[in-house]
Protein backbone atom coordinates (compact mmCIF):
# COMPACT_ATOMS: atom_id res chain seq x y z
CA UNK A 1 0.00 0.00 0.00
CA UNK A 2 1.08 3.55 -0.70
CA UNK A 3 0.52 6.81 1.14
CA UNK A 4 -2.18 9.01 -0.36
CA UNK A 5 -0.92 12.38 -1.54
CA UNK A 6 -4.06 14.20 -0.37
CA UNK A 7 -5.30 12.56 2.86
CA UNK A 8 -2.06 10.90 4.01
CA UNK A 9 -3.59 7.49 4.70
CA UNK A 10 -1.63 4.43 3.68
CA UNK A 11 -4.25 2.69 1.56
CA UNK A 12 -3.71 3.94 -1.99
CA UNK A 13 -3.86 1.16 -4.58
CA UNK A 14 -2.42 0.70 -8.03
CA UNK A 15 -5.20 1.14 -10.60
CA UNK A 16 -3.09 0.52 -13.67
CA UNK A 17 0.39 0.78 -15.08
CA UNK A 18 1.65 2.06 -18.42
CA UNK A 19 2.20 -0.68 -21.01
CA UNK A 20 5.84 0.45 -21.16
CA UNK A 21 6.05 0.84 -17.33
CA UNK A 22 6.67 4.57 -17.67
CA UNK A 23 4.07 5.38 -15.00
CA UNK A 24 1.77 3.96 -12.34
CA UNK A 25 -1.69 5.33 -11.62
CA UNK A 26 -2.81 5.24 -7.97
CA UNK A 27 -6.17 5.87 -6.35
CA UNK A 28 -6.99 6.27 -2.67
CA UNK A 29 -10.08 4.34 -1.49
CA UNK A 30 -10.49 6.72 1.47
CA UNK A 31 -10.56 10.16 -0.15
CA UNK A 32 -10.62 9.00 -3.82
CA UNK A 33 -7.69 11.15 -4.84
CA UNK A 34 -5.98 9.69 -7.91
CA UNK A 35 -2.61 10.49 -9.44
CA UNK A 36 -0.11 9.33 -12.00
CA UNK A 37 3.55 9.08 -11.04
CA UNK A 38 4.60 11.27 -13.97
CA UNK A 39 2.50 14.29 -12.98
CA UNK A 40 3.75 17.67 -11.76
CA UNK A 41 5.45 17.27 -8.38
CA UNK A 42 2.64 18.88 -6.29
CA UNK A 43 0.21 16.26 -7.53
CA UNK A 44 2.31 13.22 -6.68
CA UNK A 45 4.12 14.06 -3.41
CA UNK A 46 2.44 14.39 -0.04
CA UNK A 47 4.82 17.14 1.18
CA UNK A 48 4.28 19.37 -1.82
CA UNK A 49 0.55 18.86 -2.26
CA UNK A 50 -1.07 22.30 -1.67
CA UNK A 51 -2.35 22.58 1.93
CA UNK A 52 -5.62 24.24 0.93
CA UNK A 53 -6.56 21.14 -1.04
CA UNK A 54 -5.64 18.52 1.60
CA UNK A 55 -8.51 16.51 3.06
CA UNK A 56 -8.87 15.00 6.52
CA UNK A 57 -11.70 12.81 7.85
CA UNK A 58 -13.25 15.99 9.31
CA UNK A 59 -13.14 17.72 5.93
CA UNK A 60 -14.99 14.87 4.31
CA UNK A 61 -17.52 14.57 7.14
CA UNK A 62 -18.43 18.23 6.80
CA UNK A 63 -19.65 17.79 3.23
CA UNK A 64 -23.38 17.78 2.53
CA UNK A 65 -25.39 15.45 0.28
CA UNK A 66 -25.93 16.74 -3.26
CA UNK A 67 -28.63 16.12 -4.24
CA UNK A 68 -30.13 15.13 -0.91
CA UNK A 69 -31.17 11.51 -0.47
CA UNK A 70 -34.87 10.82 -1.03
CA UNK A 71 -36.25 8.63 1.74
CA UNK A 72 -37.78 5.34 0.79
CA UNK A 73 -41.56 5.17 0.83
CA UNK A 74 -42.97 1.87 2.10
CA UNK A 75 -45.12 -0.01 -0.37
CA UNK A 76 -48.78 0.18 0.61
Amino acid sequence: MTQCVRCGKQNAEVMTEASDKSWILYSCPDCRYAWRTTEVVENRTREQFPKAFQWTDETMKSFTDFPRITTRKNKQ
Binding site: S27, A34, P67, I69, R72
Partner: peptide
Protein backbone atom coordinates in the same frame (compact mmCIF):
# COMPACT_ATOMS: atom_id res chain seq x y z
CA UNK B 1 -15.25 11.50 -11.36
CA UNK B 2 -13.25 8.28 -11.76
CA UNK B 3 -13.15 6.73 -8.30
CA UNK B 4 -12.09 3.13 -8.81
CA UNK B 5 -11.67 0.40 -11.39
CA UNK B 6 -15.43 0.05 -11.70
CA UNK B 7 -16.62 3.03 -9.69
CA UNK B 8 -17.57 6.54 -10.77
CA UNK B 9 -19.56 9.35 -9.25
CA UNK B 10 -21.66 12.05 -10.87
CA UNK B 11 -22.99 15.49 -10.02
CA UNK B 12 -26.73 15.91 -10.55
CA UNK B 13 -27.72 19.48 -9.78
CA UNK B 14 -31.10 19.34 -7.98
CA UNK B 15 -33.80 20.05 -10.53
CA UNK B 16 -31.82 18.53 -13.38
CA UNK B 17 -33.54 15.52 -14.88
CA UNK B 18 -31.25 12.81 -13.59
CA UNK B 19 -31.61 14.14 -10.03
CA UNK B 20 -35.34 13.62 -10.50
CA UNK B 21 -34.85 10.12 -11.94
CA UNK B 22 -32.66 9.22 -8.97
CA UNK B 23 -35.18 10.61 -6.51
CA UNK B 24 -37.95 8.46 -8.04
CA UNK B 25 -35.71 5.38 -7.80
CA UNK B 26 -34.66 6.15 -4.22
CA UNK B 27 -38.26 6.60 -3.19
CA UNK B 28 -38.78 2.96 -4.25
Amino acid sequence: QAKGKNLLSAQFVPGHDCARHLSIAEER
